[in-house]
Design a protein around this nucleic acid. Structure first.
Length: 544
DNA sequence: GTAGGGTTAG
């Protein structure tokens, strides 16, 4: 090891600006025998884990290379920090356990990151929902959080401002807002951050009175306080009120824009979202990952492949990492816009895949008729159970849609059964929808009928409507009549329902019934739905 | 010899 080689490498290290450079530098220092120098490893891991050009799974593989690396407190904190804000917060908890088990020294940073990981893990379990094991998982995470809180007090970090904020945030994510408030009251000199956390905590449990009280009492407001207010209105689908706050607030940052864009997407105002996106760039606010995720969502829903492609290109140019939410948004956009080969490319390049990635790809393949590929991917997913990925209700929609596409009745029955027996997932209306559609289109009207009758839902009109549609193609007047009567029990019958039944009668030559239905329609004044379509023109969406 | 943190948006 020569000193000049060391300095040359250090100099290159400070100018590091892409993963390819990082790998080149790695090769150089390996040759010169400097590879065991912890300074280099630290920088490599830091860059890979946290840079926008990084690669988290690569960072993790570097982390695992030796016990010297794994027992370095700064490196552990770096991995903890990266996982805590990734789509894999559970990995952060593993790192924390590893630190405890091997006596790696923890500091206030460690607690800050691991508390954040608990908050995120809790949120992820909540959002994945609907599985019966979810409650146990939530309990495990909240116990872990409380345990770490005890540790914080024991070691004496409870007066650290950032740790305090992370604790407030964690308890408010757990839904324990009163616990958070109790801690807040005990803080001697509260920071603006802690006020903002409490306000959004009350907002999230819809206690606007308490939120507004805090908002009024706080010593001064900042852009985050205003953003919290924007997101309240967005959550209430009141985009106009959000817009008013947005235009009056003294200062706007990327989050303010992101909230407005996401708000438009959530009320399906995709053109509005794209308009805000271009305004944001015009006033010189740099889009963040979150901006792109929302905009890609708008592209996916409207088929604006051009804009989606442009975003992908710009990410490639600045070598931005494609993983997590962003990777999934791109994947989803390509699937929805029908470019399956680019979707595959994104999917295969993502080293650490979330459940949403698998689901988006399986559904993408299924709806575009690549059914064998969808089944194959599902099997791969089941075989990768060691990676803690397990199919959920959305995954089964994918395989059922694939069965439906190819008319594979037996296979669909098998998946339906498999979902309940192996994964304890109770089928929802969409799974029944797939089954009823498939069965009835294959002439198994009686079986479809029995299925709807035993379905545990109140709102099964969409199922009856599917059956009614199939009764027309199968010319089954008896079941058509039953379906129509069932439909009439729900809200107002649509024009489509009348047309279907009337066509069934017409085809059977029952003109008297056709006449009766027409009169009934006029008498009840059944609303007609205007048809519309969307086209992508000069990067904006037109309705026609 | 030396890095790094909490809130709002998905």
């Amino acid at each position: 090891m020569t000193e000049s080689a060391f300095w040359r490498a250090t100099c290159m290290l400070n100018k590091l600006s892409s993963m390819s450079q990082l790998k080149q530098l790695q090769a150089i220092i390996t040759k010169s025998g400097l590879h065991s120098h912890i300074t280099f490893t630290t920088k490599f891991i830091f860059f890979s884990a946290l840079s926008t050009m990084g690669n988290l799974s690569y960072a993790y593989s570097l982390f695992q290379q030796s016990s010297i690396v794994m027992n370095n407190p700064f490196i552990c904190n770096t991995m903890l920090r990266a996982f805590s804000k990734s789509s894999f917060p559970f990995q952060a908890l593993y790192i924390y356990n590893h630190m405890k088990n091997t006596n790696v020294v923890s500091d206030s940073f460690t607690y800050n990151f691991v508390l954040k990981a608990c908050s995120r893990a809790y949120k992820f379990i909540q959002e994945s929902g609907s599985c019966s094991c979810g409650d146990d998982e939530l309990r495990v995470v909240s116990n872990k959080g409380a345990e770490i809180h005890c540790e914080v007090i024991k070691i004496g970090f409870e007066n650290d401002h950032c740790v305090q904020s992370s604790l407030l945030y964690m308890y408010s994510q757990f839904g324990l807002v009163s616990v958070a408030h109790h801690l807040f009251d005990q803080i001697k000199d509260t920071s603006l951050v802690s006020w903002n956390i409490m306000i959004s905590a009350y907002d999230r449990i819809d206690d606007y009175e308490s939120a507004d009280y805090l908002l009024e009492s706080m010593p001064c407001k900042n852009v985050v306080s205003w953003n919290t207010l924007i997101s309240r209105y967005i959550r209430l689908s009141n985009v106009e009120a959000a817009r008013r706050v947005f235009s009056c607030m003294p200062e706007r940052n990327a989050v303010s824009w992101n909230s407005m864009i996401a708000g438009c997407v959530s009320v399906k105002d995709y053109a509005g979202a794209l308009e805000l996106f271009s305004q944001m760039q015009n006033v010189g606010v740099k889009p963040t990952e979150v901006t792109l995720i929302s905009v890609l969502g708008a592209c996916a829903e409207t088929g604006a492949l051009d804009i989606g492609n442009k975003i992908h290109e710009s990410l490639k140019v600045c070598e931005h990492k494609i993983e997590g939410y962003l990777g999934n948004a791109l994947l989803n956009m390509y699937c929805k816009c029908g470019n399956l080969s680019l979707a595959w490319e994104i999917f295969n390049r993502m080293r650490m895949k979330t459940l949403s990635c698998w689901n988006a790809m399986i559904i993408g393949l299924a709806v575009h008729g690549y059914c064998e590929e969808a089944f194959k991917l599902f099997s791969e997913m089941e075989e990768s159970l060691g990676s803690s990925i397990r199919p959920n209700q959305v995954t089964f929609i994918g395989v059922l849609v694939a069965c439906s596409h190819k008319g594979l009745v037996d296979k669909a029955r098998w998946y339906f059964d498999h979902m309940v027996k192996r994964y304890q997932i109770s089928p929802d209306i969409k799974h029944y929808g797939c089954m009823v559609d498939l069965l009835s289109r294959h002439g198994l009207l009686e079986e479809a009928y029995r299925m709807i009758k035993t379905a545990p839902f109140q709102n099964s009109e969409v199922l009856w409507r599917t059956l009614l549609g199939a009764c027309r193609t199968q010319a089954n007047m008896e079941l058509a009549k039953i379906s129509f009567q069932q439909l009439a029990k729900f809200e107002q019958l649509t024009i489509g329902d009348y047309v279907l039944l009337s066509n069934i009668y017409a085809e059977a030559g029952r003109w008297d019934e056709v006449e009766r239905l027409r009169n009934e329609m006029d008498y009840l004044n059944v609303p007609k739905e205007a048809g519309y379509s969307q086209i992508d023109m000069n990067e904006s969406i037109k309705l026609s």
